[in-house]
Simulated scan of single mutants.
Amino acid sequence: MNPLERYAPLVDDREAFFDACERPLPSVVRVNTIRSTPDRARAALDEEGVGYEEVDWNPELLRLDERGPGTSWPYFHGWLHGQEEVSALPAIALDPQPGEKVWDSCAAPGSKTTQLSAMMDDRGVVVGNDNNLGRLSALRHNAERLGVTNLVVTKQDGRNFSLKPFGFDEFDRAIVDAPCSCEGTIRKNPDTLDQWTLEHVHSVSAIQKGILSRAVQATKPGGTVVYSTCTFAPEENEAVIDHVLETEDCEVVAFDCPLESRPGVTEWEDDEYDSSVEQTHRIYPHLNDTGGFYCAKLEVTA
């Protein structure tokens, strides 16, 4: 059975959902405002003869007519960065401010990390963490190409991340774009589901709970933590939020999602989740012609 069949009851238009999952994903780039502006980047693409259309909800995102972003000089010079449209959402929900201390717990290869730095005008500090050395080299390469200077790179297990190397003991904000079963990336990686097992969903859910718990603990009272995945599985989404609401000092807060979305689910199979998860957002491929995604915003309460 196609693993996506298990999520059909959650989707309002089953046929449109499955059709969208089989189409290739549009090629999207984010304008890197550390090195350029949307106007200059668009002019450069015009000069290069690269066709594009603006994403209506964010002027810094452009859908390219050609596949892959790395074929033009604006990309090589760090004016553009390939980033899936929906993956720009977590940083926007987090809303980091210049001068703040922000933790990206699962940072590599760095699309969201460098987006955070750009939103902060490359001021303050972004701690980009990952536990995979190979992926960290990609993070460092991307940060260098994009001109990011406020990034500190660390290699730790996010579940027991230590702030001892730093001169501070809490973050203003944190983002957990968690490792997941990646079901929502099927348009980009059609073989994603070939290795899919329910056992993996449950095992990665335990890791997600640990990383998100640590993010809440490491963030100051009144601070913000954003959690996101590219999977449809409630075990990896609402169940993780429900767990952290029970075990840590935090609450779900509503945020305006600029993409069409559906509310988080409060029931799945034999489980029930805290009613506040309805304020989280599920994004299905057929709603905005994107990948599948989930995003939740938390406020630390103590």
Rank of each mutant, 00 (worst) to 15 (best):
T71L: 12
N131F: 14
D46R: 10
S27P: 15
D104C: 05
T33L: 10
P234F: 09
S276F: 14
A44Q: 12
G134L: 07
Y52M: 04
D95T: 06
N142V: 05
D65C: 01
G158S: 02
L94D: 04
A233K: 09
D39L: 14
G128N: 07
P179D: 11
K112F: 01
Y7W: 15
S181P: 03
A302V: 09
A16T: 03
Q97I: 07
Q156P: 02
G291M: 07
E15I: 09
F168N: 05
G82P: 13
G68V: 03
E53M: 10
P263N: 06
E84Q: 13
C230K: 10
P3C: 03
G51K: 02
D65T: 14
S137R: 15
L61T: 07
V252Y: 00
D104T: 04
L80H: 10
G82Y: 10
P96K: 02
T192M: 14
N142D: 11
T229R: 03
P221L: 08
P234Q: 13
T290S: 04
A108M: 01
V126F: 05
E60F: 09
G99R: 12
P90W: 08
A118R: 00
V102E: 08
E84T: 04
W57S: 03
C250Q: 08
M1G: 14
M120P: 12
F166I: 00
N142H: 12
N142C: 07
K188M: 13
I175F: 04
G210F: 11
P165E: 04
S276A: 15
C250H: 03
A254N: 12
E199C: 07
K297L: 04
F161M: 13
F76M: 10
H286L: 02
P285I: 05
G291C: 02
K297E: 02
L136I: 15
P74S: 11
L146S: 08
C257R: 04
T197N: 03
C21I: 01
D172Y: 04
I211N: 07
V252N: 01
I211F: 00
G210D: 11
P24H: 06
V277T: 08
D194K: 15
L94S: 05
E48Q: 13
L64H: 06
C106F: 11
V176M: 01
A16P: 00
I207N: 12
S181H: 11
C250R: 12
F171H: 00
G222W: 00
S276G: 11
H77V: 11
P221F: 07
A43T: 11
H286N: 10
M1K: 12
S87G: 08
E22T: 09
E199D: 15
T301N: 07
C230I: 07
I241L: 00
G68M: 05
E5P: 10
T219S: 00
D289C: 06
